[in-house]
Nucleic acid binder design. Structure first.
Length: 437
DNA sequence: TCTGGGGTCCTAGGACCC
DNA sequence: TCTGGGGTCCTAGGACCC
């Protein structure tokens, strides 16, 4: 292991090769690139007075924390009150959502300069397979160095990279590399690297699984890989158990692939504690259905399964779903189905007087070109609910889409202003979390 | 005062079909 | 003597990830 200090760089720059490469050794070709504390780093980039300070992006909850804040135990998803308790000097800053989008795209464009095989996982994270890029750009470890330098110089942000032979190991390596580092796991030294690491670094091990494994004395990845399949199956179930064994033994079957479309499209809104009156349901579900159906139409997709989520005080939530024959992409139809499902969920939970969240998700997606979507609906279609017909609904939706395209989303509204004002999270932030659909 | 919003995948039971 | 086996689809819930 070695550490390089780059003169003039404010941030610590580290590089840890897990073992030095022999001249004939194969070099691992999968990279995982992950921007550090992304939203917080952007805020510190935009406002130099925030650099070196513990800051959090968000309002009611922490969306991202700077490393200075993380050192005090602040983490994303944490309620603001608890974050302030742990870190008294914590400063909350508003989100520059358009900048997050722009800078994230800029970084991805840099990655794309080295290979077409870039698989973007989220706004700030991607896998790459640079095995075919050697002749042009050098060994993967060298490519990783170049990427880190370019992102630092051209964008101004710290980025950590892990290099390994599989996606899973590259991902773990980038986590170990943080902040602002590079870790290369050389071929043949994988066990040495993995064995001492905590099981929580394995993809799919969260708090619940970690606790179950710990109850059997399994805390490291090495111990996990030594555990027999039957014991593991008893602890966490057969499906998860066999997956964990694969990953712990560095046998990740997944490969890097670019593109790929999502399997569902959804939206939800936290509401505080409110009584789920018919008016409230119509208002909130109207807004959510508008968002979801609009995104479906934009992607030329439609879905057969509609799922609603209702959360009650105490974080208990229930779902109700319905699979229909004709794929749904119209706002009005989605809204009607959702209202029926929510009504059913509330009836089934008659003891509840208040709800804290409503959500809609559409899955079982099919590709559907806009031309096909506007075909008339058969008269005997059992799922056509009253008039206008499905075709007329989509025609209406598309004209609304077109107006919004020209004059902005706010130019035609389904939701009442009251809802928009109450919305805790700006739509710009919601859009950041959307995956390519 | 229990905490945002967007997703993925798995499990288990039941209906239904051959 | 209540009764095989396999497959698909749907529904509800849960864990997990960014």
């Amino acid at each position: 292991m070695r550490t390089l200090d780059r003169a003039g760089a404010a941030a610590r720059v580290t590089e840890r090769a897990f073992v030095s490469l022999g001249p004939m050794a194969a070099s691992p070709a999968i990279l995982h690139a992950d921007l550090d504390a992304f939203y917080a780093s952007v805020e510190q980039l935009l406002d130099p007075s925030l650099r070196g300070k513990p800051i959090a992006v968000g309002g009611g909850v922490v969306l991202a924390a700077s490393y200075e804040a993380k050192r005090h135990g602040v983490s994303s998803g944490m309620p603001a009150g608890r974050a302030r308790e742990r870190c008294p000097g914590l400063e909350f800053v508003g989100g520059h959502f358009a900048e997050y989008r722009r800078l994230g795209d800029q970084v991805m464009a840099i990655l794309g300069d080295f290979t077409d095989l870039v698989q973007r996982i989220s706004i700030d994270e991607a896998f790459m397979d640079v095995g075919g890029s050697r002749r042009l750009f050098g060994e993967p470890a060298q490519i990783a160095r170049t990427i880190r330098a370019r992102v630092r110089e051209e964008v101004g942000l710290p980025i950590s990279i892990g290099a390994a032979g599989t996606r899973h190991l590259a991902k773990i390596a980038s986590q170990v590399a943080k902040p602002d580092g590079l870790v290369v796991v050389e071929v043949g030294r994988e066990r040495e690297f993995l064995d001492p690491l905590p099981v929580s670094l394995v993809w799919g091990v969260g708090p619940a699984t970690e606790a179950r494994l710990a109850s059997a004395g399994i805390t490291t990845i090495g111990q996990l890989s030594d555990t027999s399949p039957s014991v593991l199956a008893k602890l966490v179930g057969g499906g998860l158990g066999s997956r964990l064994r694969l990953l712990a033994n560095d046998e990740d079957p997944r490969v890097v692939r670019s593109g790929g479309r999502g399997r569902s499209v959804g939206a939800q809104s936290a509401l505080g504690r409110v009584a789920p009156t018919a008016e409230l349901r119509a208002e909130v579900l109207g807004h959510l259905a508008d968002r979801v159906a609009g995104r479906l139409r934009k992607a030329d997709r439609a879905g057969r399964t509609v799922t609603v989520r209702v959360r009650f005080p105490g974080m208990r939530s229930v779902t109700r779903s319905l699979t229909v024959e004709e794929p749904v992409a119209s706002t009005l139809t989605l809204r009607e189905v959702s209202e029926q499902l929510v009504a059913q969920a509330l009836t089934d939970n008659g003891g509840e007087w208040e709800v804290t969240l409503l959500g809609i998700s559409v899955s079982n997606l099919i590709e559907q070109a806009s031309v096909q979507l506007e075909l008339p609906v058969a008269d005997d279609d059992p799922h056509r609910t009253g008039s206008p017909t499905g075709a007329a609904r989509l025609a209406l939706d598309r004209s609304v889409d077109a107006v919004r395209e020209r004059f902005g989303t706010g130019s035609v509204a389904y939701a009442t202003p009251a809802f928009s004002e109450r919305g805790a999270v700006p739509d710009e932030f919601r859009e950041l979390a959307e995956r390519d659909s």
